[in-house]
Design a protein around this nucleic acid. Sequence first.
RNA 1: GCCCUCGUGGCGGAAUCGGUAGACGCAACGGACUUAAAAUCCGUUGAGCGUAAGCUCAUCCCGGUUCGAGUCCGGGCGAGGGCACCA
Length: 868
Amino acid sequence: MQERYEPAAVEAEAQQYWDRNRCFEAGEDSTRKKYYCLSMFPYPSGRLHMGHVRNYTIGDVLSRFMRMQGRNVLQPMGWDAFGLPAENAAMDNGVPPAKWTFDNISYMKAQLKSLGFALDWSRELTTCRPEYYRWNQWLFLRMLEKGIAYQKTGVVNWDPADKTVLANEQVIDGRGWRTGALVEKREIPMYYLKITAYAEDLLDALNQMPGWPDRVRAMQANWIGKSVGVRLGFPYDIDGLSGVLHAFTTRLDTLMGVTFCAVAAEHPLATHAALGNGKLAAFIEECKRGPAIESELATQEKKGMPTGLVVRHPISGEAVPVWVGNYVLMSYGEGAVMGVPAHDERDFEFAKKYHLSIKPVIDVAGREYSLHAWAPWYAEHGRCINSGAYDGLEFQAAVETIAADLSRKGLGEKQTTWRLRDWGISRQRYWGCPIPVIHCGVCGTVPVPDEQLPVVLPVDLVPDGSGNPLLKNEAFLAVTCPKCGGKGRRETDTMDTFVDSSWYFLRFACPDNDKAMLDSRVGYWAPVDQYIGGIEHAILHLLYARFWTRFMRELGMVAFKEPFAHLFTQGMVLKEAFLRKPETGRVEYFSPADVEVTLDPTAQRRIAVLRSDGQEVESGGVVTMSKSKKNGVDPQALVDEFGADTARLFTMFAAPPEQTLEWSDEGVQGASRFIKRLWKAVHDHVKQGAPAALDKAALSEEQRTIRRQAHQTLAKITDDIGRRRTFNTAIAAAMELLNALAKASHGSRQNSPQDGSVMQEALEIVVLGLSPIIPHVTHVLWHALGHRTALIDEPWMPVDSAALQTASIPMVVQVNGKLRAHITVAVGADEGTVRAAALADPHVQKFLGAGEIRKVIIVPGKLVNIVV
RNA sequence: GCCCUCGUGGCGGAAUCGGUAGACGCAACGGACUUAAAAUCCGUUGAGCGUAAGCUCAUCCCGGUUCGAGUCCGGGCGAGGGCACCA
C-alpha cells in the first residue's frame, strides 16, 4: 500500500472498477426488494453548482447504503433539457439551442462521473429528444380526449418591440428585459390542463403522506387554497335586463352589513355599464392594464367607479349600488364581491375612500367600532347584531340559517372555491415540446393522429429574439390536415417545461421502449421510494407530478396515485459575499477568493480587505451562492484540488442535509485532513502485516473497550444513515472512533496479536461505515485491509451485540436535578443497590447535608436523582 | 395580514422518547518537529470565581408543567421561507 494519499489516482481506480463491472446498472428482479432513489434531474445550464453536488451526494449516500443493505437499487439520471436559457444562449452566441444543450450535457455528465455517483447511466434520458417528448404529446392527446386538456384564451406578456411573448421573469419593472419596451397584455388562445378537477384529491391525500415534510405539505395545501363558503345572488332588473349578480363569500354571517357590491373590470356587468359611459370604459381599460408586477397588485391603491347600476339585497330587498373595483379579481370566485366595509379591511378602505356607508353587524365580545380607522378585530367572528331575524346568532348558526333562507329563495348555495387554477401549458417559444395539433381552415383545430407522432422539433434553428422561429419555418409549418387532407398549419406553441418533468421519474423504468410510454417494468420500480431535491420545487413541480400521476392512473398506466413515497428537501448552499457600496451607482461584489479576512483582536471584529487594492470591503452576509454575488464555489476546482471524496465529505459533514449549508474553505481543509488521517491509520496498520484472527474470548479489558466503541459506532452510523438521515453525525461518530484508535495505538499497539485484530475490525468499521459518503478512498482502503471483494459488493456489517455488553456501567447522580457525582454500577443492579451506591458517594453526601430525602428517581443505566 | 420553520460557545453544528448541555469539525492560543515556513503531531479552549479540589452562572426574553426543560405548554422578541387585494 502506498504511503501517500493521492485522490486523483484513488478516484480513477475506484471509478474504473465500477464502470468496468457495471456495478450500478439496475435490473428488474422480483426476488429482491427494490429501492428507487431519485434526485431531481438537472437543467443542463453549463456546469454543476454546489447545490447539485449536495443534492446528488445525499441521493448517492442513500443509494449506496441501501445497496449494501441488500436492496435492488435504481438511481438514474437525466436532463431536463428544454427551456429558455438555451434560447438566450443561442441569441448571444448564434448557436442553435440543441447544440448548446448537448454540449452542456456532455460536460456536466463528465462532472457527475468525476464525483463518483452510483448512477445507472444506461437509463439516461434527455427530455429534448423525440424518443422522450413524443410521449408528452401522446399523453396530451389522451388529455384532450378526456377533456382534461382544453383550449381557452389566456393573457400573456407581449413585447411589442420584439413581437414576442415574454415569461414573467423576463418582465422587469413592466418592461421587456431585452428591448426595454413597455410590456402589453395580450389575449391569445392557449391550452390548459384541468388540474382543478383533482384539487380535492390532491389536497386530501396530503394528509396521508407521512414520507413528506410537513412544510412541503403545508405549502401545497396553501397553494391549492380551499375555501368553503356560499355563492349568493343579488337579483337585478336593469334596462329591462333582469338577472342575478353572483358573489362568493366565506362570511355569510355579515350579509346584513352589505352596503355595496364590487365587480372586477372584466365582469360582464361592468362591460354592460360601460357601454354608454366613456369615463367608466376608460377606467375599466386602466384596470385591465393593471400593474405589471404581481407584487404591486397587493399594495396598489384601491380604486373604483360606480356603474350606476343597482342590485337588490337578497334578504332585505334594499337597493345596493354596484361599483367596479380594481381589487376584485375576475379569476377568483365569481369576479364579484359583496361589500361589507365594517368587517372586511379591503371593503373598509374602499368605503372610506368613496364615502360609502359602513354598517357593523357583528358584535365581537362587546367591543366598540370606531369606524374612523380599521382595527384587525373588526374581521373576527362574533354574534350577529343589526341583522333583523339573525340577531344573536353565532358565526356557524348564522351562516347555516342565512344559507337556508337564501336557498329557499333560489339565491344561494354552499360552494367550495379554490385558489388553484388550471395549468396553462402553452408557451410561445421555440425550444420546447411541440403541442401536437394542426390548424385547418376547414376543420378547425385537429389533434395530430397517434401514428403521426412524434411531431419533431427542428433542431437547427437559431432564435434571434424576434418571436418564435418556428413561425418562419415552412418545413415545420406546412402539413396536410389529417381530417380533410386539405392544407393545414402546425401549432407553433410548445409545452411548458414542467410537463417534461411531470413524469420522467416513471420513464426511467423503461427508457428504451419505443412502442409505449410506460410498460410493466414501471410496476416493479415505481413509485419512487426516495425523492431528493430543492425546496424551490415544493409547489409547482411536485404538484404537477402528483396531478400527472393521477391522470395516468385513470388511464390504467400506473397503479398508484402518489409518485414519491418519501420526499427529502435539502437545504441551500450559502457563502459569505463581499461588496462595496459606492456613493453613486451599483453595488459591486467581489469574489471571496480575492478577499483577505483577518481578525482584529483588539477591535473585536473581522476585517476584510480586497487583495488587489488593499482597501476594505464590506460583508454582505452569508447568502445563497450566485453568479451575481460572485460567491459561488466551482465544484470542478474543488474536485481537482482535493478530490471528489473531500467534496462529498465536507458537504455531508458541515450541516444536516435539510438545513442550509454554510460553505467554509477551512472546513474543506478539515475534511481533507480527516481522509488523510484515515489513510495513514490504515497504512500504519497494514504495514505491520496481516493480523491474527480475532479471538473474542481472549481479549484484554482495554481491547474489549475498543471493540465496544467500534461496534457502538457502527450501530450509530447505521441508524444515522438508515433512519435519521443525519449524515453529519454519522461522520462525527466515525471521526471519534478514529481519534480513539489513534490514542490506543500510541501505547500498547501490537503488543499482543489481538491488538492487531481488534484494530483491523475497528478500521473496517470506519472504512465500510463511511463508504456511502467517501466511496473512492474506502474502495481502495478496503482492498488494502486485505479484502478481495470490492467494498461496493460487500453486505453492510452487522453489529455484534455481544461486543456491546459490559460488566458495569457509569451512571450520574443528581441532587435536586443538579449533577453532583459519577458512579459505576454493575449491569442489571437492582434499584436498591443503585440507590445505596449513589447515597454512599462522598460527594453526594456533601450535598445531601442535613436535608431529608424526599424521593429518589432512578433511570436505569443512566441517572439517579435524589430530591432533598 | 395568514401559514410554516428556526433562535445553543468566536464560527458550522451535537445533545434521537423530558434525563450528564456544547460531541465532531473550524478558528484561536501554547508546545514538538524544522535553519525557516508549510504540512504533521501533542495539549488548552462557554463565562465568572478559586493556588487547588471545586463552586456559581449559562441554550433569545418572561412565565408555567415536572424530581428534572435546549427539548413540553402559554406569552413576547428576533431571523428565514411560503402565500398574499383569494372575498
